[in-house]
Design a protein around this nucleic acid. Sequence first.
RNA 1: UGUCCUAUAGUAUAAAGGUAGUACAUCUGAUUUUGGUUCAGACUGUCUAGGUUCGAAUCCUGGUAGGACAACCA
Length: 554
Amino acid sequence: MSEEKSLNFIEQIIEEDIANGTHGGRVLTRFPPEPNGYLHIGHAKSICLNFGLALKYNGQTNLRFDDTNPITEDTEYVDSIKQDIQWLGFNWANEFYASDYFEQLYTFACKLIEQGYAYVDDSTSEEIAAMKGTPTEPGKESPYRNRSAAENLDLFTQMREGKFKDGEKVLRAKVDMSAPNMHMRDPIIYRIRHAHHHRTGDTWCIYPMYDFAHGQSDSIEQITHSVCTLEFIPHRPLYDWFIEKLNIFPSHQYEFARLNMTYAIMSKRKLLQLVNENHVTGWDDPRMPTISGLRRRGYTPDSIRQFCEKIGVAKRDNLIDISLLEFCIREELNKTANRVMAVLDPIKLVLANYPDGQVEEMQVENNPEDTTAGSRTVPFSNTLYIEREDFMENPPKKFFRLGVGLAVRLKSAYIVKCDSFEKDADGNVTTVYATYLPESKSGTDNSGLTVKGTIHWVSAQHAATAEVRLYDRLFKVEDVGNAEGDFKDHINPESLTVIQHAYVEPSLLEAKEGTRLQFMRKGYFCVDKDSKPGRPVFNRTVTLKDTWAKESKR
RNA sequence: UGUCCUAUAGUAUAAAGGUAGUACAUCUGAUUUUGGUUCAGACUGUCUAGGUUCGAAUCCUGGUAGGACAACCA
């Protein structure tokens, strides 16, 4: 039973409504994106909330595109939004568009005019803004406010017929110019826009504003719980006012706090800027907080849903630690991703006493967390690549890796003891020499030796070359939204490191796009779409937790 | 000098007048053929002042702090 789990405030409202028989216990939510950009993790929160509510209370969710502003919207966005919702694992009951309701909304507007609740205003936008007053001073009534219903109807008809240019006239609701709530000071509900709409084409040259489209669309669809973010709270009295004056289905609006995340931005406008100014490669750049970016980065739908579950829903402003998102993907991938060996920054390890030309196929388990994952073989020889950071010329105490005189286990192979090393002219270590203990072979070890460290490796002659893209957080500061100056000043110049020549075990040559793997001791990676035959490209989804890195920094 | 929203560990989120709990983060220790995982433990909190009540994180009042609102955007 779900009684154990606590309810968020919206669930509490819904359970009360169900208990009271409101709408006969029916629950119908909606997810209403404007198709003017790609969905991001903040939208995922809203999607999980709206669809989750319906799932939990035996209801349904409509997908409704809020496409009332033709100049910013495009079908490219419509398509990506649909793909992202489905990828997250949700199904909408109906696919609607606010533009489906243009005729109905026009009728609603005429009804308002007839009732004396709306009028055509010839003022310029500057004049309207000036008459609006300020939050602390009341506004002034427009000189056009008292036109007759007949005149307004005639003018509004002419607006629709295209008799006026953009900006010449608007239709305003007649509410109260001295209301303390700015949104009630005769809000504009229709504007003239001679623009091509991605769905209605050139049928219309007047378009309803958000306030005269959203609530009405909710009502037309008989949405029971219209859930949106906090910034719409001041709109709610207007939302209710229109429903009352129009006498239509009483949908209700509820507001929750939008998601903010450390080291990230959620503003569509700013994300667009990153794309347009090439700070990233596109909306699906793996550094982007977009659904498509996270997908390409290697995040799973499950991990994102888990994240949305864990962050909760409330009304207070928040800044979620991105490490929670990382926790969610690690938690899943730990159970599901096969372990493989990849050397990102290679140096050679030569085993002096291992016969030249001999090759052994070492048995390696695919996932210690999943016994059903099986095992594979990895070729082993006397010349291997190991990670540069796994050798130190002057190892400190508690360094459980290689240094002259130190021994480690090569994962799933032998224990080796380091004898010497070579450096190039620049002083960089190039080759490490070691001897192996034949009786320490993994699985049949009777050497009696134990070593503290185990390192990964690949056989030099068998290794495949791969490109590896290491992603880090896109911004250097925690709270990008509230940081001083332009947000672009805080972009992390090291958010992407490309390794052209990483060595990976040969089995990875056939890895298919989207495959998620753990590079042992390095992190979780996935196969990028840029992969070519013979040259796979891997994206780092997230590093492993690394307590040694913390320790060694001290 | 308006209206509205909000205030619980570092970050989030529970506790619907009755033991302040959970997760992430951080720190210990154990286990480990991944310095991963797992396990055990530690850490730290009700903005403030009053009031109501046997009893207040919760209800009321005042204060303080943060946020939203003045696009022909959504």
